[in-house]
Amino acid sequence: MPLPEYIKKDYKRTRTMKGSWYLTSYKYKFNLSRIKEYLKGLKNGILLGLKCRSCNTVSFPPRLICGRCLVKPDQWVRLPETASIATGSANYDEEDKKREHPFPVIAVRQDGADTALIHNISDDVDFNSIYIGMPLKVVWAKERNGLYLDIDHYEPIEDPAIELNKKEGSVD
C-alpha cells in the first residue's frame, strides 16, 4: 500500500540531529598482574594455561574466573607447543580479494587446554585445506615482549607426536 501523502510530507520535514559519541574517553581496565606468569612465560617461550582446582578446566589464554565454579583459578600448568583447530572460517575482506585465496580465521585449542583462542594461521595455507582437528604448532614472534601476540601464528604440522619428540631431542 502506498504511503498517504501527509506521511510523505512529514517525513521530508523530519530533521536529524548531529550526535557525538565520546568513544575515545572510554577506558578498559585489566590488572595485568593477574596474568603475570602467563606473560612472563610467553617472553621465555613457555606456554602456561590456568587450571581451576575445582573442575580441572584448563584455560588458555588464562581466564581470571571459572564461571562454572565461581572461583579464581590459581594453578598454572605448562602446555606443549602443539595445538589443533577447534573450528575455522575465512575472512572475505575487501583487501583480501587481491589474494589468491581468502584468509583463514581459526579457533585453536592448545593441546592440554579446554578452551580455544582465535588466532592466525600461516599465510600460505588455503582455507579449503583446513579441517577440525588439524594439528598445528606455535610459531613464535621474532622478538618476544611478554605480550599476547608473542605467538605470531600457528602452522600446520604432520603429526603432533613427531613434533613433541623433536622437542625432547630424540630421533624420529
Binding site: 578498559y28 581496565k29 585489566f30 590488572n31 593477574r34 581470571l64 574466573i65 565461581l70 572461583v71 579464581k72
Partner: peptide
C-alpha cells in the same frame, strides 16, 4: 579501583554467596 570491573563483580557475587 586497582582491578577490572570483571574482578570487582566477582568479589561482590562471591562475597554475597
Amino acid at each position: 579501583l586497582m582491578m577490572s570491573p570483571y574482578e570487582m563483580l566477582f568479589e561482590a557475587t562471591r562475597g554475597a554467596l
